[in-house]
Amino acid sequence: MGTIGEAVRRRRSGLRAGVAGRILDFALIAIIAAFLILLGTKVVAQGGSFFVQILTFAVANGGIYALIALGYTMVYGIIELINFAHGDVFAFGAFLSGSLLPIFGLREGGAFTPVSAVALLAVFALTMLACAFLNISIERIAYRPLRHAPRLAPLITAVGVSFFLEGALFLWKGPSNVHYPNILPNAGFELFGATIGVKDLLVIGISLILMFALGLFVQRSRLGKAMRATAQDRDAALLMGIDIDRTIAATFFIGAILAGAGGTMYGLYYNTSVFDLGFSAGLVAFTAAVFGGIGNIYGAAIGGMVIGMIRTFWDGYFDSAWTDVMIFTILILVLIFRPTGLLGMRVPEK
């Protein structure tokens, strides 16, 4: 009976639990602070221009991860499913846009004219639509029939779909890195001794615009409100006359639009892609979504930015072989110490 007395003593007041939570938060902050201090010494040692350069990469990288993370968080918010295939939809976006560019007359080394800008816009639009269509089909075929099945079932199909898509990309382009045409001008300007290119500005600009548009959409539009209502309480939303199937499909649609844009920008930025890009990028983006608080779109945007930046800074200043180990360690620590993330909502177990 000793254990019970002990447990009772431990849990007698909510205050204790609060203190324990505080300590864990404090530990987390201490770890982050330690990292920042370590980083700070390196930054000072290596000079300011290198730092500005890395910072630019970091923000661009963070923007791309934020776009992917949004898709994870939206789908999780509405049907509580970790859509494993989402990262592969992103990778599909990168592959598809890479193949579309030459068709639209955008070739590596060609001059970038206003016409090319329009063509690039068309590639963006087509890729985003194709990804959206793909994601909706995935939902329709693999997830919707299992909506009332035990929880494990759709999670396993999600893993299956992810493998299927990776397999399809593997068949399409093979096992090695695929070159992505470098069509953007290499021009840029100097800032504190670092070069900020058109690419950087384009990626940062487009991701900010898309995130802002998504925020407006979710807050203001009818469909956005329906999404928030469905995420909060599916049954109540149903009673209020919201078409659940349509709302869920719309969520997959929008998530994939962002992933498609992210995939295109990834290609334009890094000029390379590989069949299992979606797996690694997806895991990082999912980490970002969890970090920000899964289910919360602002959390995903911030989380994506932060994780993307941590990654780039680590790559820049430390041994990049350990980057992924560090990211996944963050994932596990966040889930253990602060499962609701930075801005997370509390979701009851279903």
């Binding site: 009976m1 254990t3 019970i4 447990a7 009772v8 849990r11 007698r12």
Partner: peptide
């Protein structure tokens, strides 16, 4: 015996 805040399985065992 005070059982406030004990876990469900502890309550059942008691």
């Amino acid at each position: 015996r005070e059982i406030t805040g004990a876990k469900p399985h502890q309550v059942a065992t008691l």
